[in-house]
Simulated scan of single mutants.
Amino acid sequence: MSLPAAFLRDVERLIPAERRFDDPTSTLAFGTDASFYRLIPKLVVRVESEDEVVELLHMAQRQRVPVTFRAAGTSLSGQAISDSVLIVLGDNWNAREIRGHGAQIRLQPGVIGAQANAWLAPFGRKIGPDPASINACKIGGIVANNASGMCCGTAQNTYHTLAGMRLVLADGTRLDSEDPASVAAFERSHAGLLQALANLGRETRANTALAERIRHKYRLKNTTGLSLNALVDYDQPLDILQHLLVGSEGTLGFISAVTYDTVPD
Protein backbone atom coordinates (compact mmCIF):
# COMPACT_ATOMS: atom_id res chain seq x y z
CA MET A 1 0.00 0.00 0.00
CA SER A 2 1.40 3.41 -0.94
CA LEU A 3 1.35 6.49 1.25
CA PRO A 4 -1.52 8.97 0.72
CA ALA A 5 -0.72 11.61 -1.86
CA ALA A 6 -1.92 14.38 0.48
CA PHE A 7 0.49 13.20 3.18
CA LEU A 8 3.41 13.16 0.74
CA ARG A 9 2.58 16.68 -0.46
CA ASP A 10 2.49 17.94 3.13
CA VAL A 11 5.81 16.29 3.93
CA GLU A 12 7.43 17.79 0.82
CA ARG A 13 6.36 21.26 1.95
CA LEU A 14 7.75 20.71 5.45
CA ILE A 15 10.97 18.75 4.96
CA PRO A 16 13.68 19.75 2.41
CA ALA A 17 14.43 17.22 -0.31
CA GLU A 18 17.88 16.46 1.08
CA ARG A 19 16.25 15.13 4.26
CA ARG A 20 13.66 12.91 2.55
CA PHE A 21 14.56 9.45 1.28
CA ASP A 22 12.41 7.09 -0.76
CA ASP A 23 14.93 5.57 -3.17
CA PRO A 24 15.47 1.79 -2.97
CA THR A 25 19.03 1.97 -1.64
CA SER A 26 18.21 4.35 1.22
CA THR A 27 15.01 2.61 2.25
CA LEU A 28 16.79 -0.76 2.19
CA ALA A 29 19.56 0.62 4.40
CA PHE A 30 17.15 2.23 6.85
CA GLY A 31 15.06 -0.96 6.86
CA THR A 32 17.71 -2.62 8.99
CA ASP A 33 18.71 -2.10 12.62
CA ALA A 34 20.90 -4.26 14.86
CA SER A 35 18.19 -6.95 15.01
CA PHE A 36 17.63 -9.75 12.51
CA TYR A 37 14.34 -8.19 11.37
CA ARG A 38 13.85 -6.17 8.19
CA LEU A 39 11.05 -3.82 7.17
CA ILE A 40 11.43 -1.53 4.17
CA PRO A 41 10.05 1.96 4.89
CA LYS A 42 8.14 3.74 2.17
CA LEU A 43 9.59 7.06 3.27
CA VAL A 44 12.45 8.08 5.55
CA VAL A 45 12.41 11.59 6.99
CA ARG A 46 15.31 13.15 8.88
CA VAL A 47 14.03 15.66 11.44
CA GLU A 48 16.06 18.48 12.95
CA SER A 49 13.59 20.12 15.35
CA GLU A 50 10.72 19.41 17.68
CA ASP A 51 8.49 21.63 15.53
CA GLU A 52 9.07 19.30 12.59
CA VAL A 53 8.16 16.29 14.72
CA VAL A 54 4.93 17.97 15.85
CA GLU A 55 3.93 18.85 12.28
CA LEU A 56 4.73 15.35 11.02
CA LEU A 57 2.58 13.83 13.75
CA HIS A 58 -0.29 16.16 12.84
CA MET A 59 0.02 15.12 9.20
CA ALA A 60 0.24 11.44 10.07
CA GLN A 61 -2.80 11.65 12.30
CA ARG A 62 -4.88 13.39 9.63
CA GLN A 63 -4.03 10.77 7.02
CA ARG A 64 -3.87 7.75 9.39
CA VAL A 65 -0.24 7.06 8.47
CA PRO A 66 1.83 4.98 10.92
CA VAL A 67 5.22 6.43 11.89
CA THR A 68 8.21 4.96 13.70
CA PHE A 69 11.08 6.83 15.37
CA ARG A 70 14.73 5.91 15.02
CA ALA A 71 17.76 7.21 16.90
CA ALA A 72 20.98 5.18 16.41
CA GLY A 73 19.30 1.97 15.25
CA THR A 74 21.19 -0.26 17.70
CA SER A 75 17.99 -2.07 18.69
CA LEU A 76 18.24 -5.85 18.94
CA SER A 77 14.48 -6.33 18.80
CA GLY A 78 13.39 -4.42 15.70
CA GLN A 79 12.05 -1.28 17.39
CA ALA A 80 13.78 1.07 14.91
CA ILE A 81 12.35 -0.22 11.63
CA SER A 82 9.08 0.35 9.79
CA ASP A 83 7.25 -0.50 6.57
CA SER A 84 5.53 2.90 6.63
CA VAL A 85 7.26 6.17 7.58
CA LEU A 86 10.53 6.19 9.50
CA ILE A 87 11.36 9.42 11.35
CA VAL A 88 15.10 9.59 11.97
CA LEU A 89 16.88 11.99 14.32
CA GLY A 90 19.16 14.43 12.51
CA ASP A 91 22.30 16.13 13.84
CA ASN A 92 20.64 18.90 15.86
CA TRP A 93 19.50 16.82 18.83
CA ASN A 94 22.68 17.00 20.91
CA ALA A 95 21.93 19.66 23.53
CA ARG A 96 22.75 19.06 27.17
CA GLU A 97 22.43 20.93 30.45
CA ILE A 98 24.48 19.85 33.47
CA ARG A 99 22.98 20.82 36.81
CA GLY A 100 24.16 20.81 40.41
CA HIS A 101 27.80 19.95 39.68
CA GLY A 102 26.70 16.88 37.75
CA ALA A 103 23.92 15.73 40.08
CA GLN A 104 21.51 15.99 37.15
CA ILE A 105 21.86 16.18 33.38
CA ARG A 106 19.20 17.10 30.82
CA LEU A 107 19.78 15.58 27.39
CA GLN A 108 18.19 15.64 23.98
CA PRO A 109 17.54 12.24 22.37
CA GLY A 110 20.38 12.46 19.82
CA VAL A 111 23.14 12.43 22.44
CA ILE A 112 25.20 9.23 22.44
CA GLY A 113 25.25 7.61 25.87
CA ALA A 114 29.04 7.57 26.14
CA GLN A 115 29.15 11.29 25.28
CA ALA A 116 26.82 12.05 28.19
CA ASN A 117 29.18 10.16 30.49
CA ALA A 118 32.17 12.04 29.08
CA TRP A 119 30.48 15.35 29.97
CA LEU A 120 29.79 14.06 33.49
CA ALA A 121 33.22 12.51 34.07
CA PRO A 122 34.82 15.70 35.51
CA PHE A 123 32.19 15.56 38.27
CA GLY A 124 32.77 11.88 39.04
CA ARG A 125 29.23 11.11 37.84
CA LYS A 126 27.54 9.21 35.00
CA ILE A 127 24.06 8.30 33.82
CA GLY A 128 22.67 5.14 35.40
CA PRO A 129 21.95 3.05 32.28
CA ASP A 130 25.01 1.28 30.87
CA PRO A 131 23.89 -0.73 27.82
CA ALA A 132 26.55 -2.69 25.96
CA SER A 133 26.08 -0.39 22.96
CA ILE A 134 26.60 2.80 25.00
CA ASN A 135 29.35 3.98 22.63
CA ALA A 136 26.83 4.05 19.77
CA CYS A 137 23.27 4.11 21.14
CA LYS A 138 21.52 7.40 21.76
CA ILE A 139 19.55 8.72 24.70
CA GLY A 140 16.25 8.53 22.80
CA GLY A 141 16.66 4.79 22.40
CA ILE A 142 18.05 4.31 25.90
CA VAL A 143 14.93 5.91 27.39
CA ALA A 144 12.40 4.43 24.97
CA ASN A 145 13.76 0.91 25.59
CA ASN A 146 14.58 1.39 29.29
CA ALA A 147 18.06 0.11 28.40
CA SER A 148 20.15 -0.94 31.35
CA GLY A 149 23.03 -3.25 30.46
CA MET A 150 24.79 -5.78 32.63
CA CYS A 151 25.85 -3.62 35.58
CA CYS A 152 23.17 -1.12 36.57
CA GLY A 153 20.54 -3.76 37.31
CA THR A 154 17.17 -2.18 37.97
CA ALA A 155 18.09 0.43 40.58
CA GLN A 156 19.95 2.67 38.14
CA ASN A 157 18.03 2.17 34.88
CA THR A 158 16.22 5.06 33.20
CA TYR A 159 12.94 4.28 34.96
CA HIS A 160 14.49 4.65 38.42
CA THR A 161 16.78 7.61 37.64
CA LEU A 162 14.27 9.71 35.68
CA ALA A 163 13.95 13.27 36.97
CA GLY A 164 11.97 14.88 34.16
CA MET A 165 10.88 14.50 30.55
CA ARG A 166 9.81 16.58 27.58
CA LEU A 167 7.57 14.64 25.22
CA VAL A 168 5.26 14.96 22.23
CA LEU A 169 2.10 12.86 22.14
CA ALA A 170 0.59 11.36 18.99
CA ASP A 171 -1.80 14.32 18.68
CA GLY A 172 1.17 16.72 18.55
CA THR A 173 0.72 18.02 22.08
CA ARG A 174 3.93 18.92 23.89
CA LEU A 175 4.51 18.41 27.60
CA ASP A 176 7.57 19.37 29.63
CA SER A 177 7.23 17.96 33.14
CA GLU A 178 9.83 20.47 34.41
CA ASP A 179 8.03 23.54 33.06
CA PRO A 180 5.11 24.64 35.30
CA ALA A 181 3.46 26.55 32.43
CA SER A 182 3.65 23.49 30.17
CA VAL A 183 2.24 21.27 32.92
CA ALA A 184 -0.62 23.70 33.61
CA ALA A 185 -1.52 23.88 29.91
CA PHE A 186 -1.43 20.10 29.62
CA GLU A 187 -3.63 19.68 32.69
CA ARG A 188 -6.21 21.90 30.99
CA SER A 189 -6.01 20.34 27.52
CA HIS A 190 -5.69 16.69 28.60
CA ALA A 191 -7.62 16.58 31.85
CA GLY A 192 -9.47 13.47 30.69
CA LEU A 193 -6.26 11.57 29.99
CA LEU A 194 -4.75 12.50 33.34
CA GLN A 195 -7.94 11.56 35.18
CA ALA A 196 -8.03 8.20 33.40
CA LEU A 197 -4.41 7.52 34.38
CA ALA A 198 -5.13 8.49 37.99
CA ASN A 199 -8.14 6.17 38.06
CA LEU A 200 -6.20 3.33 36.46
CA GLY A 201 -3.44 3.73 39.04
CA ARG A 202 -5.92 3.72 41.95
CA GLU A 203 -7.70 0.66 40.60
CA THR A 204 -4.44 -1.18 40.08
CA ARG A 205 -3.11 -0.39 43.56
CA ALA A 206 -6.46 -1.33 45.11
CA ASN A 207 -6.33 -4.74 43.44
CA THR A 208 -3.90 -6.31 45.89
CA ALA A 209 -3.27 -9.46 43.89
CA LEU A 210 -2.62 -7.55 40.66
CA ALA A 211 -0.42 -4.95 42.38
CA GLU A 212 1.70 -7.64 44.00
CA ARG A 213 2.01 -9.50 40.71
CA ILE A 214 3.28 -6.35 39.01
CA ARG A 215 5.76 -5.68 41.81
CA HIS A 216 6.92 -9.31 41.61
CA LYS A 217 7.45 -9.08 37.84
CA TYR A 218 9.46 -5.85 38.09
CA ARG A 219 11.65 -6.72 41.09
CA LEU A 220 14.11 -8.06 38.50
CA LYS A 221 15.00 -6.62 35.11
CA ASN A 222 11.87 -6.60 32.97
CA THR A 223 11.63 -4.62 29.74
CA THR A 224 8.84 -6.65 28.16
CA GLY A 225 5.83 -4.51 27.33
CA LEU A 226 4.88 -1.19 28.90
CA SER A 227 6.21 -0.19 32.33
CA LEU A 228 3.10 -1.19 34.23
CA ASN A 229 4.98 -0.74 37.50
CA ALA A 230 4.33 2.99 37.02
CA LEU A 231 0.72 2.27 38.06
CA VAL A 232 1.80 0.95 41.46
CA ASP A 233 4.90 3.09 42.04
CA TYR A 234 3.25 6.50 41.50
CA ASP A 235 -0.08 8.11 42.28
CA GLN A 236 0.31 11.43 40.43
CA PRO A 237 -0.88 11.04 36.82
CA LEU A 238 2.01 13.07 35.35
CA ASP A 239 4.49 10.77 37.10
CA ILE A 240 2.60 7.75 35.77
CA LEU A 241 2.59 9.18 32.24
CA GLN A 242 6.29 9.97 31.97
CA HIS A 243 7.30 6.65 33.52
CA LEU A 244 5.01 4.82 31.10
CA LEU A 245 6.97 6.51 28.29
CA VAL A 246 10.13 4.81 29.58
CA GLY A 247 10.36 1.49 27.78
CA SER A 248 7.35 2.21 25.55
CA GLU A 249 9.51 1.83 22.41
CA GLY A 250 7.97 4.87 20.74
CA THR A 251 4.39 3.65 21.00
CA LEU A 252 3.15 6.37 23.36
CA GLY A 253 4.99 9.45 22.14
CA PHE A 254 8.22 11.10 21.07
CA ILE A 255 10.76 11.87 23.81
CA SER A 256 12.45 15.17 22.93
CA ALA A 257 14.44 15.60 26.18
CA VAL A 258 15.06 13.70 29.39
CA THR A 259 16.56 14.70 32.73
CA TYR A 260 18.50 12.09 34.67
CA ASP A 261 19.48 11.97 38.31
CA THR A 262 23.05 10.87 37.77
CA VAL A 263 24.92 8.23 39.79
CA PRO A 264 28.52 8.05 41.09
CA ASP A 265 31.04 6.86 38.55
Rank of each mutant, 00 (worst) to 15 (best):
A132K: 00
D33V: 13
W93N: 01
C152E: 02
L244Q: 13
I214R: 00
G90D: 14
H190A: 04
A132L: 05
D91C: 03
M1Q: 09
T204Y: 13
P122D: 12
T68N: 15
E212Y: 01
A132D: 08
L89A: 13
V258A: 09
F7D: 03
H160I: 10
R202G: 05
I40P: 07
F123Q: 02
G141Q: 08
A155Q: 12
D22W: 09
A185F: 08
V85P: 06
F21Y: 15
T154K: 13
G73T: 11
G253C: 07
T251E: 14
L238F: 04
G110A: 11
A144G: 13
D10F: 02
A257I: 02
G141T: 10
V67H: 10
D83T: 03
E187T: 05
N117A: 12
Q104D: 00
A170S: 15
G31I: 02
T74A: 12
T32R: 08
T74S: 14
F21H: 13
A71V: 09
A185Y: 07
L107P: 10
L89H: 07
R62L: 03
R106T: 08
A230T: 14
S49W: 12
V65I: 10
I40S: 09
V111E: 14
T173S: 13
T68L: 11
P4F: 05
V67A: 11
V88I: 06
I40V: 14
Q104E: 04
G100N: 08
G172P: 12
F186W: 06
I40G: 09
A163C: 00
H216V: 07
E18R: 14
T32N: 03
L39V: 07
H101L: 03
V183G: 02
L226S: 08
R19W: 07
A136R: 11
L86W: 06
M1L: 09
G253A: 08
G250L: 09
V183L: 07
L169E: 03
R166E: 15
D22S: 14
S133Q: 08
